[in-house]
Computed example of a mutant assay.
Amino acid sequence: MEFAEIILENRPSPFWNILKQIGVDKAVGVLPRSYKDWRQQLEENPWDYGPLMRYKNMLEDNGLKLVAIEDNPPMDGIRYGIQDLKEEQLEYVSHMLENMGKLGIKLWSYSWMAGFGWSRTHTHIKGDNGEFVSGFNIKDIENAPPPKLGKISADKLWNNLKDFLEYILPIIEKYDIKIAMHPDDPPIEEYRGVARIMNSIENYDRYLNLVKSENIGITFCQGNFALMIDDIPGAIRHFNKRIFFVHFRDVKGNKYNFVETLIGKGKTDLVEVIKAYIDINFNGILRVDHTPTLEGDIEFYPGYSYLGRVYSIGYIKGLYEALKHG
């Protein structure tokens, strides 16, 4: 198991030094949209070789090895299957993957949420001890319109996903890049008229069999899987080596109405979760995710604060070391 942390800043920060001080020296990156060299901003996209290379070098010059990209170029033309837009965006994704391969970045976390990404309808709920947490209530979106590209059915999403995987398969196998599908967040049946398909164990099994490759796997976001099923350890053992990347977080509630929680305060038995990762000899990347904002904390945006992430990293590392050697 490799502990890493997502880097959202576009330049070195004191948080990077804190990560190294607590034993985390690997980084999960986003595409460097705000890190463009002004001389090249008209010539290169964030997923092109130059920006990715400079971003990787900036992290590694400051002691953090870039091991994954958790971000993507525009992809809704691909998800919706809009022909002209799809062809352009497939080029974006293929260039990104090729450049990742050339730079030795071997993991891409992506999603199949069309029209909208992950969503919360509440960003600053007061938790039990005064910390701020985020949450979702489906009643808040009952009257919300569909996205600009409109509605789309589950069948079309499945067909477009299969086409996409077939298109990128030669690239990811050539460069030995693992791609890890993030769940729909929240994992409801549809969101504002748009179908969701990455929202159950059965659908993940279907996904893993669409196009057969050991390079196609899962971002096991525990918060989302906890809203799909009650047995998280069982799901970990079920997917086993197809779990490439873990988001370690927890929630209270159900997929229609939930809040995120401090590690150890949610609905999941985290001792049994760690035991399951040890049982399958998980050797992928794990990071904390969507942590509460504590008093006096520096919040990058809701769910990504400094103290909350440091607390969670310490909690998980302590639990893992105790159970691994206990």
Results as ranks from 00 to 15, higher is better:
F300K: 07
F15K: 08
P46L: 06
N72Q: 14
E2S: 05
I243G: 02
R287M: 07
L210M: 07
M198Y: 14
D155Y: 12
E87V: 07
L59R: 04
P32Y: 00
P170S: 11
I168Y: 01
T121F: 06
I188C: 06
R39F: 08
E44M: 04
M58T: 04
I168M: 11
G130K: 05
E299H: 03
I280P: 02
P32C: 04
F225A: 10
E295D: 08
K252N: 14
V259F: 10
R33M: 15
I298W: 13
A226M: 08
I152C: 09
A276Y: 03
N254F: 06
H124Q: 13
D279K: 15
N215K: 15
K267M: 12
K102Y: 13
R39Y: 09
M53L: 12
L262C: 08
E190S: 15
E214H: 13
F245K: 05
F248T: 06
L210S: 01
G77Y: 04
L262W: 05
P302K: 00
D269Y: 01
Y55M: 07
K241C: 11
L52Q: 04
I6Y: 12
E131S: 03
G130E: 10
Y320H: 11
T268V: 15
K212C: 10
R39E: 12
L294P: 03
G29I: 12
R287Y: 01
E299Q: 05
I141F: 02
